[in-house]
Design a protein around this nucleic acid. Sequence first.
DNA 1: GCCGGGGTGTTACCTCGGGTAACATCGTCG
DNA 2: CGACGATGTTACCCGAGGTAACACCCCGGC
Lengths: 208, 208
Amino acid sequence: MSREPRREQLLNAADRVIQREGPSASMNAIAAEAGITKPILYRHFGDRNGLIRALTERHTGGLLAAVRAALAEPLERRDRVEHVLDTYLAGIEARPQVYRLLTHPAPGDPSGAGNALAPALRQIAEEITRAVQSQVDLGADRDLLAEAWGRGITGMVLAAGDWWLETKPCSRTRMVQALADLLWGRLAAAADLPTAVLPTAPTEPAAD
Amino acid sequence: MSREPRREQLLNAADRVIQREGPSASMNAIAAEAGITKPILYRHFGDRNGLIRALTERHTGGLLAAVRAALAEPLERRDRVEHVLDTYLAGIEARPQVYRLLTHPAPGDPSGAGNALAPALRQIAEEITRAVQSQVDLGADRDLLAEAWGRGITGMVLAAGDWWLETKPCSRTRMVQALADLLWGRLAAAADLPTAVLPTAPTEPAAD
DNA sequence: GCCGGGGTGTTACCTCGGGTAACATCGTCG
DNA sequence: CGACGATGTTACCCGAGGTAACACCCCGGC
C-alpha cells in the first residue's frame, strides 16, 4: 500500500474542511478532520502551499479539462465562447468554497510577485491564449493580442463570476449572455444615451 | 498638534516599507521604519487592515479620481475607453508595489466572502458600472449588464494589467489598444484561421 | 505651583498558526 | 530476528497580529 491512497484520504479530509470552513482553514483543523495530527500533513505535502496546490490541482483538473474541451468544441465562435463561459460558471457554481481556493491562492505568497491570477487561473488563461492563437486570425499582432486577451478574458470572467456567485442576480445562462455580449462588442455597438447628465454621476458618489 | 500629522508620518513610513518589501511587510517592520513600536500603530489604525485600508485609500484617491475623470471625459466612446485604460495602466505602472496592495487586499480576511476584487478595485468597478448605466443605451437589461460589465471590465484590466506590468511585453499604448480591441468586439469580428488542427492544442498540454 | 488629560512612547506579554524535532509503533521483507 | 519505511504521537520553536500596563511630556486650568 503505497502512500498515494493515504494522500488521497488526506486530501479528502482537507476538502471537507475547506468546504465547511473556507480556504482559511488551519492545518490543525484539517489534520483533526482527517483524524490525525499536523506533522503527517507536512510529511505528505511539505507545507501548506503544497497541500493547497495538491487540492487545487485535483479540482482544477476537471474544470481545466472541461474548459479545454469547450474551447476545442467545433461550434460557431460565439457558441463556443458561450459554451466556455457556461462551463466555467457551472464549475464554480458547483463548489463555491473550493473555487475560492483557486482564486484566493496563497495569503503570504513570497513567490516572485503577487500575480493577480492564481496558478489554476493562469492555466485557463494560457488555454484561452492558445485557442485564440490557433483559431482566430488576428494578423501580425496575434501573439501579443492572444496573450493579453487570454489574461484579460480570464480576469474578466473571474471578477464577473465572483460577483455573480455572491449575488446571484440572474440565471447562469443570462450571465453567460451578458459576458458574451461584452466580448462581442456590444459595448461598442450600443447607442449613446441621450444623457442630460454629464457633470457628475447621477447617483451619489457613495462615500465608503 | 492633532493626531492627523503623526498619522500621515506613519503612513509615509508604512509606504516606504511596502515600497521596499512588498505588501506582506510586518507591522513590526513598519513600526521600525517609523522609528517606533507596534502599539502606536495599533492606536492609530486599530488593526493591520485599518492600516492597509488607510494606505490604499490614500493612494487610490488619485487613481480613482483619475479614472472617474477619464470616464466623464467628453470624447468619442472608443477614445474614452482608451483614455480610461491608459489612465489605469499609467497609475499602476507608476507605483507597482503600492498597486499590489490594491489587488492583494487582506491575506486572512474572512469577512463574508473572499471577493476577487479588492475594495479599491470594487470602487473602480462601480464607477464603470455607473458610467455605462448613464452613458450607454443597453435596453431593458441595462442594470444587469452594467453591473456585470463593470466587474468584468475591471477584472479584465486587473488581470491583463498585472501581466503587462510583470512582463512588459509592449508599450502602454499598444496594451491599451489590445484591451480596447477586445472590448470592441475584435474577437468577434476576426476571421477564422484556416486551422487544420482541431483534435488537440497545437502545443503540448504542458503538464505542470 | 500643582494636577489632570491627551498626546507620545515603552516593555512584556498573550494567542494562534505554520512548521519541526524527537520519539513510539506497526507491518513487511530479507 | 532485525531493519526499514510507513504510521502516528507529544512537545516544542518561531514569527506575526494584537493587547495590557506602565512611563513621559506638555499644556491648560484651578
